[in-house]
Design a binder for these strands. Sequence first.
DNA 1: GCCCTAATCCCAC
DNA 2: GTGGGATTAGGGC
Length: 456
Amino acid sequence: MAQPPPDQNFYHPHPHPHAHPHPQLQLPPQFRNPFDLLFDERTGVINYNYIRPYIPNQLQKPDDLSDSLVMRRPRRTRTTFTSAQIAELEQHFLQGRYLTSSRLAELSAKLALGTAQVKIWFKNRRRRHKIQADQQKDYSCDSMPLSPAASNSSKSETNGSASSCGSSSSSGSSTSSSGPPSLQSLSLNGSGGSTPNPLTPSPTPTTPTANLMEHYGEAAFNPYYYNNHHASHPPHHHQAHHHTHASLTHPYAAAGTQYYPPPTGSLQHHQHQHQQQYHAHHPHQFQMQHKPQASSIKEDPEYSYDNPYYMRMPTSLPETTATTTVQPSTAMSPNSDVYEPLTPKNDECNGVGGGNGDAPEDLNETKTTIRELVTNNANGNDDACSNGNPIGSEGSGTPAINIMEDCTGAFAKFQKMSPDTTDPNYQCTMDTLMHAYNNHRNTSANTQQFATYCFN
DNA sequence: GCCCTAATCCCAC
DNA sequence: GTGGGATTAGGGC
């Protein structure tokens, strides 16, 4: 009987050439999932060298089993994923943290990996992400100063980042005591006073992706970019890149953690490990996703794409990053089998969930909101502005609107993070704009002053 | 030896 | 069957 070639993906404790009985033969109960050990789902090869009884560690070894047969389930040889495989896996993880069977099969075939390996990778990736998210949350809740907007709003309200930070967002416990700040806390915190319900995506037009990508660099959000722009460059380019975007005291650096900038040593490792570690240190882009209920994702007819809790991926990027290669998320498609729901608890810390990173759309929303604000104010409809000195006090909101229209590019100012958290221009959120507005509506004699303050 | 992480074990649903 | 949490262990440095 011809013996199949041994499969190198399996551990062979007894590499003797004698074939063990065929797995279809009767197996005693202590054999658990023998096919796990025998069948390589990638190659389809049965490993005839390998039939061992599985005895849980906790169970006592039956007397009639020799020591040579009692062992922990042997491991497969550790797979070393290629950088391309990692990139692909990361990209799919970006699109959704859970895979359907069809997606799994497709991905495993595409990457020439076993389905078990793909599943394990996603499982471990989710685990890693959760740990880091917990660390970030702890850090951001404990240490990060609130943006002026959040600070303002928190004076009169107890919603927003402060209160939601205190509630656990996951079934697991937060175990770490320190870590890098959440990027949400860094750049998206401005929703505190303008997000009535922290469990819903913020109605405050924010541009999280634009903010974060500009501040941290495209690579932090796009593994493809990372591959294309860093893999071929010496490590110092990588670091220089980040210094460019975090030229001042970076919260991560200030925290003295290993997370950001990535440790020099690891960055100087070879590309594969470099890439793996990079993603381990930059998990921020998945903050809004969480585990769906049970197995409801795949067939749940209520799994509506239109549900605002569902992940939204950026479909367009600021012009400064328009040359990069972020793929339109298939998670955007109702036919996608990778998109997943966002549960309310996913809105960690500040209720900016939803991943609504469509910058131009948000910008338009912001402008529309301000337009209404100014118009109402100018028309005397702003009850809050009873001091007789409203914006557009010339009797029409038109000048302010015109200024805004003329200052479209100036909105970009608010998409930049300031290292100075006391800077009232800290964030481009409605809170910030309202902060500026409130500060100046009592003092500005005309629209121009306000517009100058806000948009220049 | 340390770190990262693939793989395993265990339990819950 | 699949998930998460805990753990083990391979491999690079």
